[in-house]
Design a protein around this nucleic acid. Structure first.
Length: 420
RNA sequence: GGAGGGGUGCCUGAGUGGUUGAAAGGGCUGGUCUCGAAAACCAGUAUGCCCGCAAGGGUAUCGCGAGUUCGAAUCUCGCCCCCUCCGCCA
């Protein structure tokens, strides 16, 4: 949710940004409605003042005198009721229109609808070389019986997978490793709910712009399955006012993530790169507005640190406005080198929502007499499946693959995974 | 899933139709006292929106929503949440 005053003052900009994100908004309608609402509020409050005064006067009267007043006061009360109803209707309409307006983007984000124009900012890490033609992860993993999508299809359908044996163990090693890494940076480990109320996920901003199609909904309970721990971590402090000295709050949430992949028909159908269910460690920061940039850099730094520690080559990509999710104002993707496929694939992202989510969820800060909405940021710690893919491909050997050194302590010192 | 009880301000906790945004105590802030502190005493201490340079005023808010009424924290209905017991269960 954007501040209506901001929309009023920067109408063209808001419209341009929305257009570049492929979203049509009707700001004229919204602002006209807002004007109408102000006017109506004046009427309503005056009517209420009149009724309140008359009612208070009744308190001191005798029953007979009251009787004489009732009819006229009744009329006053009815006027108030009618105005109230009208006001509530328009206000709801305003909320709907305002909620459909996507976030703005930060000044450094190119206004461009075309994701092909995402810009690679830099590449880091040396790509591995092999004395043999590198294979892709699935070939290796199936040979070692680590990933089984064929049987998963039998049990659950397409876009599911079983992680077995060393792959399953690697998942826990990766999580443990990443948790240790971020704990040093002040992140609190969290295992959040994976089902959240409809209005909460709406507040986080992931139902707009086709979002309902991408989410799994439990109709009987009015709950959505989260697509990321972000969906449960950002609202952790909803309807709270946090003292400035309690900020920033940094959370590392581990959860299973559920995605329909509704817009990805026929894309990446093989293996476990793009599946309906995967596990991920997600980082979320809630901070004062002036610390937003610093936190963004911190989160990006953690992502890079983790990949560096795992010895995986990666590059940083700045997304154009058209590729940034609805509630976010700036996103960098981190793409990891996949030598078996010969391409970089997205494994991480790092974003700020500015105060967009905080407004919708009513998360504020207080510093002395000053109050305002916090900034919320989120970044991938490690997406387990994709990290697994990257490790298998980058560390592959003729017989299997090696375990990155930093992970070995989490696997009882194991050095590699091979056929035997 | 069944049966009960309950949701009031930063906290505890009064309040069952009439100037109640809300008693009292605690906490917190400021002050007096003190070399300093404690204690004591005094004062202050919710938020959103609107009008206003300000002082101030208006309005809404006692889980959320609707209703009854001239008037609702107080009555009625629906929903949400919490607690206790039973059932079930990792």
């Amino acid at each position: 949710m954007l501040d209506l005053r901001y929309i009023r003052a920067h109408r063209d900009h808001v419209e341009n940004v929305a257009r570049s994100r492929g979203i049509t908004v009707s700001l004229d309608k919204l602002l006209a409605l807002n004007d109408k609402l102000s006017e109506l509020r004046g009427h309503l409050e005056r009517a209420q003042a009149e009724r309140n005064a008359a009612s208070h006067a009744m308190a001191g009267l005798e029953e007979r005198q009251r009787q004489a007043q009732r009819a006229s006061l009744k009329a006053l009360g009815d006027t108030v009721t009618k105005l109230k109803q009208r006001y509530a209707e328009l206000e709801q309409r305003q909320t709907e229109l305002a909620s459909a307006v996507p976030n703005i983007v930060t000044d450094d984000v190119p206004l461009d609808p075309n994701p092909e124009h995402n810009r690679v900012l830099r590449a880091e890490g040396a790509k591995p070389t092999f004395s043999f033609p590198p294979r892709d992860y699935l070939t290796i993993a199936e040979k070692l019986d680590l990933i089984d999508t064929a049987r998963a299809a039998k049990v659950s359908g397409t876009r599911f997978g079983y992680l077995k044996g060393a792959a399953a163990e690697l998942e826990f090693a990766l999580v443990r490793f990443a948790l240790d890494y971020v704990a040093e940076q002040g992140f609190i480990a969290v295992v959040p709910p994976v089902m959240v109320r409809d209005e909460v996920i709406r507040g986080v901003g992931y139902l707009e712009a086709g979002g309902t199609l991408e989410r799994y909904h439990l109709d009987a309970d009015g709950l959505y399955l989260v697509g990321s721990a972000e969906h449960a971590l950002v609202p952790l402090h909803m309807n709270e006012r946090l003292a400035a000295d309690e900020l920033p709050r940094r959370y590392a949430g581990f959860s299973t993530c559920f995605r329909r992949e509704a817009g990805a028909a026929g894309k990446d159908t093989r293996g476990i790169l793009r599946v309906h269910q995967f596990d991920k460690l997600e980082l979320v920061t809630v901070c004062l507005p002036e610390h937003g940039d610093e936190e963004f850099n911190r989160l990006l730094g953690i992502e890079e640190g983790l990949l560096r520690a795992l010895g995986l080559p990666y590059r940083i990509v700045q997304l154009v406005s058209g590729d940034i999710p609805f509630p976010l104002a700036k996103t960098y993707d981190v793409e990891t080198w996949m030598p078996g496929q010969g391409v970089y694939r997205e494994t991480h992202s790092c974003s700020t929502a500015l105060d967009f989510q905080a407004r919708r969820l009513n998360i504020r800060y207080q510093r002395g007499a000053e109050r305002g909405f916090v900034h919320t940021l989120n970044a991938t710690g490690l997406a387990i499946g994709r990290t697994l893919i990257a490790i298998i491909e980058n560390y592959q050997t003729k017989k299997g693959f090696a375990i990155p050194k930093k992970l070995r302590p989490y696997l009882n010192g194991r050095k590699d995974v091979t056929a035997e």
